[in-house]
Design a protein around this nucleic acid. Structure first.
Length: 116
DNA sequence: ATCCTGACGCGCC
DNA sequence: AGGCGCGCCAGGA
C-alpha cells in the first residue's frame, strides 16, 4: 500500500469551493477571507481565479466579494453581481456593500436576519 | 518546466 | 476620494 491513492492534488481550490458553498444567503465573504479559511490567507487572487473556473452552480460565487465590501469583479458583469446581492437583502451602494459588518459571513456567528 | 495572466489586498501618491 | 504599483497564489498556454 503505501500508496496514498493520489497526492493531495488541489486541496486548496477544493477547499475554496467548499468554503464558498458554506456561505449562507444574505451573507458575503471576501476573497481574502475565503482564502484564509481555505488555508492561504495570501491567495486572495488565486481564489478569484478559482471562482471563475469553479463552474459549480452550488458555489454562490456572487456572494464572494473583494475586501472592504467592494464588489470586486464578476466576469465583467459586476452589475449582475450587485443585483444578486441586493436581491438577497444585502444593501449595496454603487460598487460598495453597506453594513458590511452585518452581511459579513463569519464562521460560528449565526446572526439572524433580524436587525440588531 | 517556464512565463503570463487574472473575479485580490494593502500601501502610497 | 480615486488611481497606481508591488506582492502573493494558482491555473493555462
Amino acid at each position: 500500500m503505501a500508496k496514498r491513492t493520489k497526492a493531495p492534488a488541489d486541496p486548496f481550490s477544493h477547499r475554496v469551493l467548499a468554503v464558498v458553498r458554506r456561505i449562507p444567503p444574505g451573507r458575503v465573504a471576501s476573497y481574502g477571507e475565503v482564502a484564509k479559511l481555505a488555508g492561504r490567507p495570501r491567495a486572495a487572487r488565486a481564489v478569484g481565479n478559482i471562482m471563475k473556473t469553479c463552474g459549480r452552480p452550488d458555489v454562490p460565487c456572487h456572494r464572494v466579494i473583494a475586501a472592504g465590501g467592494r464588489l470586486g469583479g464578476y466576469g465583467g458583469s459586476e452589475m449582475l453581481k450587485r443585483s444578486l446581492l441586493v436581491a438577497e437583502g444585502i444593501v449595496v451602494s454603487g460598487s460598495r456593500v453597506r453594513e458590511l459588518n452585518r452581511v459579513r459571513w463569519t464562521v460560528g456567528k449565526v446572526r439572524s436576519t433580524k436587525s440588531e
